[in-house]
Structures are given as structure tokens and as C-alpha cells.
Amino acid sequence: MKFFNQHKQVSLIIEETLLKKISQIGIEKYPYETGGFLVGYYSDDSMTLYITDYLLPHKQKGMAYLFERSIDGMKQVFKNLFDRQKHFYIGEWHTHPNGSCMYSSTDLNAMIEIANCETVNITNPVLLILSITEKQVKDFTFSIYNNKGLHPYE
């Protein structure tokens, strides 16, 4: 599946099966929020992002309106991924149980913190939000973070 972001003139490509797997995890955790990391790589011209996989945090707290993920034990996972495949951390995903796929101010602040983080090498992390119910994903949105704002893909 291919998405386009007008603001940065960039594309995002993700396999539908990967998106389905992520959706399944979200539904299983319903009515609690859950989420994790997205990994992938950029094309040589930096205009296309290929999302190749997701990673689940080893530790997380999921509540109905809040999701907090830890990176405990994840550092080596990210390093191995880069050493073996040259794939790296490119963003985040989480669910909004019974909510819309519009990002919250908490989400935006999290993305600002991520982009400003010294150990993060990317300046435009993406955020995937899945709006879910007990049985299904109602909707989902990819957004790109840039300069204190989140801009959705179409």
C-alpha cells in the first residue's frame, strides 16, 4: 500500500499483510491502548519510506486512554536490525480504542520528544494511529512529523 504526504512530498510504502498483523495486535489488547515501534528504510533519494516491520516493546503500560512504552531491552534489537539488514527505527504506532485516528496533544508532544532525542538519527519520524473497536480497525492514519507538526498522508 502506498501513501503520499503533500507537506514533505514523500511517499510511504507498507505491505498490507504487515498492517493486518499490527491491527490484529491492537484488537487483541482492546479495550486498552497498545503500540510499538516501526522500522524500515528510506530510498536513496530520501523521498520514499519502506516500512518493513514493527517491533513490540518488551515493557509497556496500556490503559484505556494512555499507552506508555519502554525501550528496556530494545537497544540491542535496534542495533542487530541495522547491522544485519540496514533497517532502522522510523516511527511509532499505537491504537485509539473507541477513538478517532486523530492524534492527541500527548501524541504530538511524544513525537517532538522523539525527533529531538539525541540518540534518534531521523528528523521526520512517522506516527501510525489505528482507531479500533472490539472487533475491528475502523480507520487508520499515517502522519509525518516535521518541525513541531504532524502532517497526515493520503
Binding site: 494512555l66 499507552f67 512504552r69 541495522f82
Partner: peptide
């Protein structure tokens, strides 16, 4: 490699 911040909410 990028290591995202810890305990992000």
C-alpha cells in the same frame, strides 16, 4: 541506528 527515548507516552 536510532534508539528512541524511553517511557514515551
Amino acid at each position: 541506528v536510532s534508539i528512541p527515548p524511553n517511557n514515551t507516552r
